[in-house]
Design a protein around this nucleic acid. Structure first.
Lengths: 239, 239
DNA sequence: ATACTAATATTGTAGTACGATTTTATAGTA
DNA sequence: TACTATAAAATCGTACTACAATATTAGTAT
């Protein structure tokens, strides 16, 4: 499960709670929320804290407040779907196959292009970070260590593009990998390093400054990952 | 200039004002903001309104507050670079050539892939919307009308992917096109429809369900746009 | 010198009051 | 009867005050 905002503060808890309810569809788009005073009472917080939370949800595009009329859940069309919290909330109660497919589609768009860009203009430090992450993957003793190193590897590739806009897409990759990690925890228990050779090819292509080779290698890696997810889905159906 | 949050409400104004100062570097990463009471006084709002604004900026990753220590501007590494407001604030005082290059790079990653996806699985309504936008471009009487229709066209392509994550990337495309619009307002005054044939090829490929043709057509369109920007930059140097 | 304790400054939360705004209802008029 | 305009009510928006929680820092004792 991808990490979402740890609800340490009070209004943080309200953000998380309301956000989850909206994204999960428990409160449907178009629905009118109770008035602030009532809602604050229901959630056992002051109106002050509630409003601070609602401002954040408004910024994420989930709700819309107007005087007299109240606060309404907006159409998903307006949600900040790339926001880390929104993504995490969508995956909290087992993501649908449909959503998983969309995550894979995003990986197919982002990662091969990022790998090519990384091969084109990454510096020594960024390459070193990539090597370190790869080494950690190779050395991983268990599924958890592998997953953490894998995440580092894919983050390092985005960082190596030297484009902070690309880097911000890591929220999507992180959500995808985190979800796949949970879903494949059982099936791939003993063979979690199966994609190491794919990663090595990507690293090698970036190291040698071969953009198109890097793109193709990453494309194969993601294709392979997609195939594995499909296989898992099939296996579950027969279980 | 891409539209940012119109500061209608009081705290909306504070969000815009502080956000701009931070993103523009006027307040540097690591800097400590004045304490809430002081800052509220400086901006002529109550601490309540200021805090609501700060919660939003926190959600955008721009600042970080901790009891006793105060509120600090975070490293750009943590900013939500894909947020529509953050993007707009970056472009408010003439974006740097460096940033424009990054926007183009994002277009090259997003739009060809989106065009291919649209050709693969768009429905009749989405295609109709695309046709409408194209017609509006063809009929545009001035640069402004052209620009609005152009924006519609590119939004329609993202919508036609049937992937809301892809759709959320429109904030980036919108910022890029809006910026190019301003920068090319003079140079391309009389010939603003020069890219119409490129758009037609993209539309045609999607209409005929040719993913790879759509990808290539859009790739050429973006390449062409990049060349035009480079030419403009060169022209400015000689001016 | 170090560890522990207490004072202190800043954010976090609560509660109340009032202003702004928009919907809705009501009344007046054609 | 229909329509316009005016007034009233409900909700969010903002301000202010008070206090709690927390982390830093200084001070104190071992």
């Amino acid at each position: 499960m991808p990490r979402s905002t740890p609800p340490r503060s009070l209004h943080g808890h309200v953000i998380h709670e309301l956000g989850k309810r909206i994204v999960s569809g428990q409160i449907a788009p178009g629905d009118l929320l109770p008035r602030e005073e009532t809602l604050a009472e229901q959630m056992s917080v002051s109106r002050t804290a509630l409003r601070e939370a609602m401002k954040v949800l408004t910024a994420k595009g989930l709700i819309e407040s107007r005087p007299k009329v109240g606060t309404r859940v907006r159409d998903p069309r307006y949600w900040q779907q790339l926001d880390a919290d929104v993504l995490a909330w969508r995956c909290e109660n087992l993501p649908t196959d449909d959503f998983i497919e969309k995550l894979i589609e995003m990986r197919e768009v982002i990662e091969p292009a990022a790998s090519a860009a990384a091969a084109r203009h990454c510096d020594a430090d960024q390459l070193a970070r990539l090597e370190t992450a790869y080494a950690a993957m190779a050395d991983a003793a268990d599924h958890e260590a592998w997953s953490a190193a894998d995440l580092d590897f894919h983050e390092a590739i985005l960082a190596a593009t030297n484009n902070e806009l690309m880097m911000s897409l890591f929220a999507v990759i992180e959500t995808a990998l985190g979800t796949f990690f949970v879903l494949s925890a059982r099936t791939a228990a003993g063979q979690f390093k199966y994609s190491l050779p794919h990663h090595e090819l990507v690293l090698e292509a970036i190291r040698r400054r071969r953009p198109e080779a890097a793109r193709r290698a990453m494309q194969r890696l993601v294709d392979d990952s997609r195939a594995n997810m499909a296989q898992r889905k099939h296996g579950r159906k027969n279980a």
